[in-house]
Design a protein around this nucleic acid. Sequence first.
DNA 1: CTCGACACAAACAC
DNA 2: AGTGTTTGTGTCGA
Length: 811
Amino acid sequence: MGEDSFQTYLNRESIQNIDKRLQEREEEEVVVVEEEEDTKKKDIFKQQIQKKNATTGVRKKQLAPRSNLQFKVGPAFLHHKQLDHIVTSIDGTPLDFNLKARIDRGFDLIGDQWVGYKRNYFTLVAAFQTTSSEITTFLEDSYILNLNHPNILRSFSIIQFGINVMARLHQSNMEIGLVQHTTKRDKGPHGKPKMVPLVPSNLPDHESVRAITNMKRARKGSSLENAFYFHYPDEDIRENTFSSEKPLINGYPSKHINKVARFERLQFGTSSGIKTKNGNCKMFQLDIIVGVVIKAPQEFHLEKLPSVDLVEISKNGNNTYFVHLIEKSTPPLVIRGRSPANYTEDGEPIQTIRKETTGDHNKKPISVHNSKPERMLDGNSKVLQYKSDNKRFNTSYKGSTKNPHYQPETGSFRSTVNHKHSSLKEQARNNSERQTNRYPLKRQHTGAIKYQLGKTSAKRQHKVTVKCSFQDHKPLPQGNEDDNDSVDDSVIKINFLEESSPLKYTASPSAPRNLNVFKSTPQFNRTHMTSKENNDSTITSNFNTSSYFPASTLSSPLKLRPLNKIPSFMKKKDGEASGTDAKKLDRPCYIQTLEELEKEVLEKRQILMRNIASKSPLSLVDSPDKNLLKSVNFRDIETKPLNKSRPENIVLLGSVLYSNSQSVYHNSRYNRYQNYVEDTNPKFNRSYIRRDIDSASSELNTNELSATNLTFSHLYDETSKVLLNRHQLGKCDPTQFTSEDNILNYIMEGKEKVTDYTYLAEPTINETCDKEPRTNLELLSSASDSLLSSLQNSDGMTYRSKHDEYTNLKV
DNA sequence: CTCGACACAAACAC
DNA sequence: AGTGTTTGTGTCGA
């Protein structure tokens, strides 16, 4: 196979054609995505590709960050190195391996060089195939690695097969650091890409990779999902079918196994600017490695062998190693550094011209400033030596000084715009290209506040959010200035607002009548009621001066205040006599409740942390937010009665952990929660909960363990219980409610809609606010608690510090 | 100069 | 349809 691809490579007249050929070749063995929608998308993408190919040589000047055209096939992995170790199944049959890899984002062919940008992500996918094609069969077998080295001729039983990626200086053994980010980039952890445990599979094609990367959540059972993940046919298959005498399966993640190693959001580490003596940038190369994980006694010192990586040192003497079977490398890569010169046509740094168009969207010109052409490195367009370590494969690039497809007259941006010699056809094409280059000015945001508050879901340090709102339908006792406010029905009075994720009250008709329903606030509205997070005084004054919001814009984008900074008017204090808003609020009992609630939540969380960390057999894993000290955070939202007096309802947003090796989607308990919530109130819950699930899903694309929020609407209350008791609805005997868990199970499995309940007696507001909100909170906390533990995975990453690498936590 | 950090804004998915 | 998310890259200052 390696030879084959190498042959293919040698026959190329110009490496310009490589990616085209690669695609052609791949199409035969492509994992076909059959689903209609996917095919449709694929077609669209192919059209885009065609458009791109039509202008070969005139690469995109600047693509929008999220443009699909950022996905492009990079250099092929042609340099093939087969190591001498032999893998056999338990009966001695040797296995053949084949490694396929492709770069799907981040590299451009410019002239005859593959060029990437240090600041940009690149994506690398790889899969391996063996003689045993059926995955289930493959997993049922056991395998032996026969280490073939003069000093160590030994056999080891194989724990995992997997693929890893490495970067080094071209034609040298000097390793270059690779960094892998999460979708949260700066806010998340980052570190060296980790080896991905894999089962043999074909490599999905370029479009499939693009599709699954962009997808928020792969539909379960979709062909796309199946192309990338192997799910056990049966949930219990591990216990029933694969027992302990099948060692291979036990080395793999228990929920599902990757078929494809997807290394996304990779970047070259710090040393990419290394220059040779002549001032040229050094070239890099990417190596993709298929290998096996074994354990071997420390004294063997396997790490001293070439192509053996020490994965983990163990105290009991058996170290874990990753032994390479096949390595494949790219041709030399140029990584352009961060210097502005690398982003210009002529290599000159762009002049620092201040944007004077701030706030004026129409003025945004298509200019050199906006569209950065790619620099042609004519000086470097010489024949490049591509020497292989393996003598069989010695060769050199026949890169032409001038790429046949490269059109000098359009090679520079200026001449592209002012091209004088182009045919009409070209002109049309260039026009359309310019169209696509232009940024549509649909939704432009300016201003730091919006950025600050509206752009990220990464959790900040304050995790307890308490929110309380109610409508005061009695005439306000005092305060003349209130008369100006002309409170109508659509006005909600806020007496306490805290922020984590801005929420907006919504009067959705389908909302259960006894729930306060909040939706996320439109970004547009946030500015008016927010201020920068660090500016406490501003917040307070804003808050104090705007106690009324029209229902349409009600939101809470204010940052959490420490307890001692609760606005004075919120505090329980008799005889408060100031002329401020404090007077308007005559329900100090709410405040009391909230303070207690907040304290309790804090304590609860601390206990939870300690419990998980000490008791749990599972390891506590840090949040993707590097600012966070702990992996778990809770936001608790307590809503108070609105128009009608009604029982408390508490919404608890708890974080759950997820990873790509133990997805929350395959946790039955999680699914029940999801059903329950969705059944309850499609409108609200779907929009809110979906969002959290989506973000979970997108992070599942990376190899890290991370955290996200689940939302639980608490629909249980004492009144409902009484009601059920009296009417004998036949669904559940209330006496079953012997434990909190029972209640929760009842709610989840019964799937009653909250609208099914009517209250026998409406509690008064006063009763409500003092009536056991803590019980409810406890209930939910413990539910969330157990859900959390059940979702926690034993084997994940932890993030220690910026410079530490990820570490595998042991079970 | 480089690098980390912050910031903006465009396209994408749902 | 409108919003949250993701990512290329502009910018600042140590």
